[in-house]
């Protein structure tokens, strides 16, 4: 364990234990604050700004965001080591965009690796490749969001074009131990068979990628928008039903990739 890593500081907004849907086994998720994208459907709107914010939750003000050292976070992560070992689980860095705090992420990942803890990150890969490259050997599983193959539509719904993301995906996949493509299925944005199949074809073309997760849109973030005093741009859009998700799953599977609904 490196002293320098332990002292590295970062900004997080939550630590969630016993997560069983973001990477293999039982995992602890560390949510890093700050994101480059502004996805309309984002269910963690409090993750987007790097600033420490106040959000109303159940009528009470809650401070979102906390500056911590790797040592402090690691102390909490370590407590569930026995469950990671038993289940083949570990930690998952999520956000926000993990890579916005690349230095903190690197220090935390290395600390975990040195302790024998399996690592994963959830990311959109929307930063320059040179920032990602040093992290690759420290990460056991990449969970990469690919939201749309059409750059203009991607920009319209997330505020960013997708070229950098796709380019990075190609490069990272070549070097990553395990790489899983995750697609949030958002009605009005990417929930047609064609759009999903396009993403699946791309995923299938990536080096060593065998799995794709379809994550159906949900409205659980709604209260948080209210709590932050922000407008919920998804309006009354309802989550895709089970039948439709299965149709999309079949469409994606036609490319030869293995598809899991939910992840």
């Amino acid at each position: 364990m490196l002293e320098k890593d332990l002292m590295t500081r970062g900004r997080i907004f939550d630590i969630q234990k016993f997560s069983t849907h973001d990477g293999p086994g039982i995992r602890t998720i560390v949510f890093l604050k700050g994101c480059l994208l502004r996805c309309r459907w984002c269910c963690n709107p409090e993750s987007q700004s790097y600033d420490i914010q106040t959000m109303l939750q159940g009528g009470k003000e809650k401070t979102i965001g906390e500056d911590v050292t790797v040592a402090e976070v690691f102390e909490k992560i370590k407590k569930d080591k026995v469950y990671y070992t038993r289940s083949g689980g570990g930690i998952t860095l999520s956000g926000g965009e993990t890579l916005c705090q690349a230095e903190f992420a690197e220090a935390l990942l290395r600390t975990c690796k040195n302790y024998g803890i399996n690592t994963a990150i959830e990311t959109t890969l929307c930063v320059p490749f040179y920032m990602i490259e040093p992290l690759i050997p420290l990460i056991d599983t990449f969970l990469v969001d690919i939201k749309h193959m059409n750059s203009a539509k991607h920009e319209e719904f997330t505020t960013m074009k997708n070229e950098l993301i796709l380019q990075n995906a190609v490069e990272v996949a070549k070097r990553a131990k395990s790489f899983i493509v995750r697609v949030p299925v958002i009605p009005t944005f990417n929930d047609t068979e064609e759009e999903i199949k396009d993403i699946a074809s791309f995923a299938k073309s990536l080096h060593g990628v065998e799995q794709m997760h379809l994550l159906p849109y949900h409205r659980l973030g709604y209260d948080k928008y209210v709590g932050l005093g922000r407008e919920y741009k998804m309006g009354d859009i309802t989550p895709p039903d089970k039948e439709h998700m299965n149709t999309l799953k079949k469409a994606a599977e036609s490319t030869g990739i293995k598809v899991v609904i939910g992840g």
Binding site: T20, V82, Y83, R86, S87
Partner: peptide
Amino acid sequence: SALEGMSGLESFVSLVRGYFDQ
């Protein structure tokens, strides 16, 4: 929902195992 699918069962067993390891 915590026990859905094979991975749910596996996680559940690991939870029992982890508690018993301690």
